[in-house]
Each structure stands twice: as C-alpha cells, then as structure tokens.
C-alpha cells in the first residue's frame, strides 16, 4: 500500500487490546486515519475513548495489537524497542499533563537533555525564548509555576525540531490564563518549526485553534472536522 507523500501519520485498521479473554479491553477498534504534514490536530473525546492510546502508539511509547501504523510511509507497527527508541529520539517531541521535568536540572538543562541527543537541535535558550522563558533558564522546576514548568516541557519538546509534537492534556493541570499561554507556545512552535502537532484535550473550546479536529468514541474515530480558519488561543472560549 502506498501512502500519499504529504501524509505524516497514516493508520489502517489500528487495534489495541489490553488483557486477554473475558478481561480483554479493546482500547482501539480498527482506527483508519491520515494526518498531513505540518497540521495542528486536536483529539477530542470522553475518557476511555482511545485517544491517549492512539497518541502513545503514534509516539512510539506503545505498540499496536493489530493493523498498520506508518510514519512518513515507514511501517512502525512491527518495530522493536530499540527502533522505537530511535524513532522517539529523532522525530518525536512529547508534552504531558504533569510536565515530567527533571527536578534536579534547571530549565535550560532540561532542554539540554534533548538537544544533546538530537541530530539537528536548536540552541536550548532559543527554545526557551520561543516559550517566553529565556530569562528563567537557570531556575529549577521547584522555582517555577505550573504554567512555566509546562512551557519548559514544551521548549524541551520543540528544541530538537521534532517532526511531530504530541501533547497529552498539556493544559489539564492549569488555570485558563496559564492554559492560554501554553497553547500560544504550542501554536507558535507549530508555526515556526512546522512540526505536525497533535493535542489531546478534554476542553472542546481548544478545538477551534486546530486545522483538523478528530472526535473519538469507544475506541474509534467517530467524526473528523476541518476548521476553515484557526482561532488564536487568546480568543478561545475556555
């Protein structure tokens, strides 16, 4: 099967089953989707709808039980652990709900962690500048607010100039004003680095800033919508 050249991700009949027999939980029930290069995509859906499972598979954190998953035409559904490590190292940036910064490293050093192993990173300070935290580069996580910590996490994710930026509930632990600043940082990163960006959120309002919105329900893609115009984060209804 050939995939269109402009496609970043492409899945066909992607399934994920946890457990066996009667206890089996079908997290993904044959997902078919295509995400073009450079787009900002928002995944919406209730808890347990399969969106995090999909994101984990797209990011190489987890492997599928069945079906096909391609990144830029490269089949990754059968990839072993070290190939997935290599894939994450060279192509993927992650942002999580709980930041996952190293408390023993300063903001800049947290970014250095990634720039030191990436093939073509931007300078760490530039990445921090992109999220508006250049002047706090020597602060430790304990000295930063939640929103600042999340922006450091974004800087860390974009510093490697990732081909894809995957964000799981990046604003889940933040108040609305801080959340908007974080979303602005993600949008800027998407625009300036051209990374294909996938954001999971519970907040339907966030969907308006995306190029494309994917609605998940019961482990499958329920609905897909294209926004004619992206709304800037500052104008989102929270």
């Amino acid at each position: 099967m050939s995939s269109s050249p402009q496609s970043c991700f492409e899945t066909r009949g992607l399934t994920k089953v946890y457990g066996e027999g009667d206890a089996a939980v079908h997290a993904l029930r044959g997902v078919d989707l295509q995400i073009p290069e450079g787009e900002l995509v928002v995944l919406l859906g209730p808890s347990g709808s399969g969106k995090s499972t999909l994101l984990n598979i797209l990011g190489g954190l987890d492997s599928a039980s069945g079906g096909s998953f391609r990144f830029r035409g490269e089949e990754l559904s059968e990839a072993n652990t070290s190939r997935l490590t290599h894939y994450r190292r060279n192509h993927v940036g992650f942002v999580f709900q709980f930041y996952n910064l190293m408390p023993s490293l300063t903001a800049e050093e947290n970014v250095d962690l990634v720039t030191e192993i990436a093939p073509d990173p931007m300078p760490s300070l530039e990445a921090l500048d992109l999220v508006g935290l250049a002047e706090r580069s020597h602060h430790f996580p304990a000295q930063l607010s939640g929103g600042e910590q999340q922006r450091v996490a974004i800087a860390r994710a974009i510093a490697k100039r990732p081909d894809v930026l995957l964000c799981d509930e990046p604003t889940g632990a933040l108040d609305s004003a801080t959340g908007i600043r974080v979303l602005r940082a993600l949008l800027d990163a998407n625009e300036r680095t051209g990374s294909t960006t996938v954001i999971i959120t519970h907040n339907a309002g966030v969907a308006d800033m995306a190029d494309r919105v994917l609605f998940f329900r019961d482990g499958d893609l329920h609905e897909e919508r294209r926004n004619a115009q992206r709304v800037p984060p500052e104008s989102l209804t929270w």
């Binding site: 070290s82 490590t85 994450r88 192993i117």
Partner: peptide, 16 residues
Amino acid sequence: ARELASLRVLGFKRGE
C-alpha cells in the same frame, strides 16, 4: 521511575 521513564520517552536508550 518517573524521571527515568521521561528520559526513555525523550528517546534515551536503556543504557543511558
């Protein structure tokens, strides 16, 4: 464990 998992997610190899 959490920091170590984060490092793995960032693409660090098991040995690293």
